[in-house]
């Protein structure tokens, strides 16, 4: 099935009928049936801002050799940081009046229908069978449309590399997952604020927690429906809008946003020739003497 679809798509682009694939390519549901998608649930009420997840992430992805002690540096919380070419996850602190601050770990949300994947013209982003959204640097041309498209602003780019710049983001430690291990950050978290598991189970767990402790959480699982749902989800003691999470992205999967346009492409490709050739035939039949005043300088010219 998958093979024949790919064959069809290749044929489609060879003839220039691009965009037809938009309706055919819905990898999400098909893959989900095969096995449960893995996901993560971050409980922001438990996070103490120790940044051990940053340490583990940097180690797992070979981003930094800094010793664990250097992550005790609390001065980084003075500013709100974002993901970067050399940090796939960041913890930020949000102060509250009269109450302890809330620490927020951010990273790629691993959308069910990723905007980055629908934006990528070389299909370098893919929703893996395991659940994480993964990136293939061997295909990337570095156009950075994925970064324009990502509603969460998570992908980063290696701007300072002249020859091999990559887009960088959390892969939910896909290699570790395939080896039967958990993502590095989930393993290291001393407060068990990050739970790894099948997305459906995590969703149930999140709602159970909210139901059991309505005083501790706002009634919202961030990532349940955002941008069509994500594999990384959050529960929080304060509204997500106060914690730097975008709250205006809606529940529609991002690929839907360009679907209408892409499906109009084959229409233009088939209707335009008819209309234009019609116009040509019509004007041709009218005869040149009727079609505007001829310019009599044609026979002159030159220098």
């Amino acid at each position: 099935m998958a093979v024949s679809r790919r064959g069809f798509l290749k044929a489609a682009c060879a003839t220039g009928v691009v965009g037809v694939g938009a309706t055919a390519a819905r990898p999400a549901e098909a893959a989900q049936v095969k096995r449960p998608w893995m996901g993560m649930l971050t409980d922001l009420s438990l996070c103490v801002g120790c940044r051990k997840c940053e340490y583990a992430c940097n180690k797992a992805n070979a981003l930094s050799d800094d010793a664990l002690e250097t992550y005790d540096d609390k001065s980084v919380f003075e500013q709100t940081r974002r993901t970067d070419a050399d940090r796939f996850t960041v913890v930020n602190r949000f102060d509250r009046e009269g109450q302890p601050p809330v620490f927020v770990k951010r990273q790629c949300m691993h959308c069910i229908e990723p905007a980055c994947a629908s934006a990528c013209l070389v299909a370098a982003f893919k929703k893996s069978d395991e659940g994480p959204v993964i990136y293939d640097e061997s295909l990337c041309i570095g156009c950075r449309y994925c970064m324009v498209a990502c509603p969460f602003g998570m992908p980063a780019f290696e701007y300072s590399k002249p020859f091999t710049p990559r887009v960088t983001k959390c892969s939910m430690c896909i290699e570790r997952l395939r080896d039967g291990e958990q993502p590095a950050c989930a393993c290291v978290c001393p407060e068990e604020a990050i739970t790894f598991g099948p997305r459906e189970e995590l969703l149930t767990l999140a709602h159970d927690k909210i139901r059991e402790h309505p005083d501790r959480y706002v009634d919202h699982v961030y990532g349940e429906t955002e941008a069509g749902g994500t594999n990384w989800m959050y529960i929080s003691p304060v509204p997500f809008g106060d914690l730097g999470f975008p709250t205006d992205i809606g529940t529609k999967p991002y690929p839907e946003l360009t679907k209408g346009f892409l499906s109009s492409v084959p229409l233009v490709l088939t209707l335009w020739p008819m209309l234009l050739m019609g116009a040509y035939a019509f004007n041709n039949a009218r005869g040149p003497e009727l079609a505007g005043a001829p310019v009599n300088t044609h026979e002159e010219g030159g220098q």
Binding site: G21, A25, C120, L121, A123, L262
Partner: peptide, 12 residues
Amino acid sequence: VSYGVTSVMFLV
């Protein structure tokens, strides 16, 4: 090499 047919950029 690789066809991102769901991408508007691909069309461009």
